[in-house]
Design a protein around this nucleic acid. Structure first.
Lengths: 343, 343
DNA sequence: TTGTATGCGTTATCAC
DNA sequence: GTGATAACGCATACAA
């Protein structure tokens, strides 16, 4: 940082005051054309570069948004992060990104780091901290696809996603339905839990026999495949003969099931129809391209930013502490990406 | 931002000066135990939170590192970014992340944004800006797996990766070798280009007949698959009868080839052996788990940070402008992740 | 249209 | 051990 050129330097060079230089940037209309020209010349004569840190300190606005994401094992998070980062072009906010560590103490440290940089808002994808703790922070915050009782959020319409999938399976003539979910059946606060309800209610509505399986969350793929293979074997037993429809809560499970069935010589989608969730790269590259419920991550990111911006604006107008805005929970509609594991 | 508690407030509360409060954080040994206790009490009585922006302005160090990554189509970039973000625990640097837009003008804007925040260093994964332009920036910068003539960098030993793959194929008895690469054969400055040399030289060394194919880079997977399927057909013709080994420059191509061959009834790895590059999730979830050259992204990120830190430290000791350190190009060794598409 | 003075919340340099 | 005071680089009320 070799002696950066500052307003003072420009001021000296032009014989104007620092204020005038400041105005050149913030209120140029109030300057005469001649002055503007002189400043402009000085600016590139001295090769000036703005210093946002100083600007932040003086004005209090950082244009920073903190993002805390889980790791990238599930491509869904990658995709959302991608979309969030892309909003830079529309909003100009910069993102300081942290990766969750499955450790709430660590996560609190991340947050206090972020706060010390005067971030204007926080986007939380990780699940380690309860939303009431996030609310206490007193800064605009929005949750994405996680427990969101006390803060605003944007979630996929998981229920609808499940309904779309199951009705597709039923419409295609499946006589027995299976749902495989990776979430611990206990954490009912996770939005994704609604996929289970969606499955159950749609089955009930159409009177279709069904069964649910759960595989415990794991970052190790071998584990996953072994468990899913076992589920496949069991599933084959259960629906002996009848055409079965499999709806999985993510594409990883779905592809594993597909592989197990395919290697076992099943005809797909004739004997088994399979639908995943997330529309990940794995879905597209499966041995039989996988039908999957696509979450609109672009829309999710956009909505998150809108919520955040709305909250941040409010914080400015009224009294500082009134960040206690009414909660808003935006729901983004999913879509069925139909490929070859369904008809 | 409701009136943050500052050193002034603590000072008033404790009847000490701001200086003493500052010392409490930066040089606590110089304070009496009694004073420290008083300050400590005041700190949580008033619920103080540090303000790094002010600290930065006063001290000049931001602990920010800028990252410019390409999009997340190739899981390799995701993985590297993941590893970079994880280094926070070891180094404490925060990352402001930008996503490339394939537009050099945009990218220059990102960089000037980053500079205005006084980032201490820059990690560049994107390819839109030539390295000599990055060098001009005058801040510590390191390139990862991209053209790196004028700045330090860390790259996978791509040549070695290819050699590992090809020798494995030869060792397994492949009589004809095929290389499929997605890079434009023109951009020889990309480190990944060495995968081609590695393929060619190893083939030559062992006197194995071979052929190379190129598919043009694309973010659209359907495109890819169609092209790779055509290549598969052609490949089948060429090596009629002889056992063929396929080495692909990324897993996406490899999985597509695998799928095409598998669906065509080929026995794998008996008739075709296939090796990809990157060891991505797709490789693990392929219908036959794919053997792939694993890039050690953790090591890559770690090396990048080490290079950066070294440069940043130098910049502090000597004169500001001496960021013109000698270039260093770190090479990280890849590893063959053997799965079922090879013996 | 332009300038003066003051503040933003720290750290750093002298003092005592 | 502790305290004034001046930076750091910019924004903003208030003057002129």
């Amino acid at each position: 940082m070799g002696k950066n050129v500052t307003f003072s330097d420009i001021a000296k060079y032009t014989n104007f005051s620092k204020t005038t230089i400041s105005r050149y940037f913030n209120n140029p209309d109030s300057l005469s054309d001649e002055t503007k020209q002189k400043v402009r010349d000085a600016l590139d004569a001295l090769n000036y570069h703005e210093n946002k840190v100083a600007k932040i300190l003086a004005r209090g606005k950082t244009e920073f948004i903190g993002v805390i994401a889980p790791n990238f094992f599930f491509p869904y998070y990658t995709s959302v992060l991608n979309s969030i980062l892309d909003t830079y072009r529309d909003y100009g906010y910069k993102f300081i990104v942290f990766l969750e560590n499955d450790n709430s103490e660590e996560e609190r440290k991340y947050i206090s780091e972020l706060l010390s940089y005067n971030i204007e808002g926080l986007i939380v994808l990780s699940h380690t901290l309860p939303s009431h703790e996030l609310q206490q922070l007193g800064i605009p915050a929005v949750a994405i696809e996680r427990e969101d009782e006390f803060i605003s959020s944007v979630n996929t319409n998981n229920f609808k996603g499940a309904v779309l999938a199951v009705e597709k399976l039923i419409g295609d003539g499946c006589e027995f339905l299976i749902h495989i979910n990776s979430h611990n059946p206990e954490d009912k606060k996770m939005p994704a839990y609604a996929r289970i309800y969606g499955f159950e209610e749609t089955c009930k509505k159409h009177g279709i026999p069904n069964k649910e399986f759960f595989v415990s969350l794991s970052n190790n793929h071998e584990d996953y495949f072994k468990k899913v293979s076992e589920i496949y074997s069991e599933a084959k037993e259960i629906c002996c003969g009848k055409k079965a429809g499999i709806f999985c809560s993510n594409d990883i499970i779905a592809v594993d099931f597909l592989n197990a069935a395919f290697l076992d010589g099943r005809k797909i989608p004739e004997e088994f129809e399979i639908i995943g969730f997330d529309d990940s790269p794995q879905a597209r590259q499966a041995i039989i391209p996988l039908t999957s419920v696509r979450q609109n991550t672009v829309e999710i990111a956009k909505s998150a930013m809108e919520l955040l911006v709305k909250q941040m604006d409010k914080g400015k107008r009224s009294k500082p502490k009134s960040v206690v805005t009414t909660l808003e929970h935006i729901v983004v509609e999913p879509q069925l990406a139909e490929r070859q594991t369904t008809f």
